[in-house]
Amino acid sequence: MTFLAKVTPAGRRRDAQTLLDLMREVTGLEPRMFGPSILGFGEYAYQYASGHSGIAPAASFSPRKAATVVYLADGLEAHAAALARLGPHSGGTGCLYIKDLSKVDLAVLTGILRASLKTVTAETFGKHGQGG
């Protein structure tokens, strides 16, 4: 994938390739670019109470210089127990920041990704009758 070949530093590129393979396995889908730097797998429609709506990737990540960002559409709080076992990371509302993927437990990360995908697709199918 051309995008990944340009990721720097080399460690971040290595982590991106590992996540690419992991997310392919978890989702059963091939990635596509969402914007200039997010690799997404599948998609779902969302609508906030404010009326704002759109389409977002069901599972995604972005290899940024400071850290790789794994986006969890159902938020980090939904995975608090698993995150306690993950290894070194930080996070925001829906963003999991990992500086070195080799230092985290990939089995725990896989479980988090599977659970998040299940939640997002269940909510999408349940609310809209269609899903990503």
Rank of each mutant, 00 (worst) to 15 (best):
K127P: 02
A67I: 04
E30P: 01
H128Y: 15
L72N: 02
V104M: 13
V70Q: 03
S90I: 01
L4N: 00
S37F: 06
D105L: 10
F41C: 00
K127E: 09
E77M: 12
F125G: 06
S62N: 03
R24N: 08
L101Q: 11
H128P: 00
L117W: 02
Y71M: 08
A84Q: 13
I98C: 06
Y97W: 10
S53E: 14
S102W: 06
A58I: 00
A82W: 07
Y44G: 11
G35N: 11
L117E: 07
R12Q: 14
Y48I: 10
A107R: 06
T68S: 09
L29V: 02
D100K: 13
H52T: 15
S53A: 15
Y71Q: 04
S60M: 02
A81W: 01
A73C: 10
A73L: 05
L86Y: 05
A80E: 15
I98F: 04
T119Y: 02
Y71F: 07
T121W: 00
A84V: 02
L117H: 07
G35W: 11
L72S: 05
L39M: 14
V26A: 13
L96V: 09
A122H: 04
G94P: 06
L83E: 06
G35A: 13
D100M: 08
V104A: 14
G28I: 11
T18F: 02
G92N: 12
M1H: 05
G129I: 03
G87A: 14
K65S: 14
L117R: 09
A66Q: 11
G40I: 05
L20R: 04
H89M: 11
T110K: 15
R114W: 05
R12W: 01
P57D: 05
G87E: 12
L22C: 13
P57L: 10
R24G: 14
L20M: 13
I38Y: 00
D100L: 08
I38H: 01
P9I: 07
T93Y: 04
K127V: 01
A45Q: 11
K118D: 14
G54C: 10
L109N: 07
V120T: 14
G42S: 12
A82T: 04
A58V: 03
S90P: 05
G132W: 02
H79E: 12
F3C: 01
A66K: 05
V104E: 13
T124A: 10
A67D: 10
P31I: 05
H128A: 10
D15Y: 02
L109R: 06
H89V: 04
A84H: 01
Y46W: 14
S53F: 08
K6I: 00
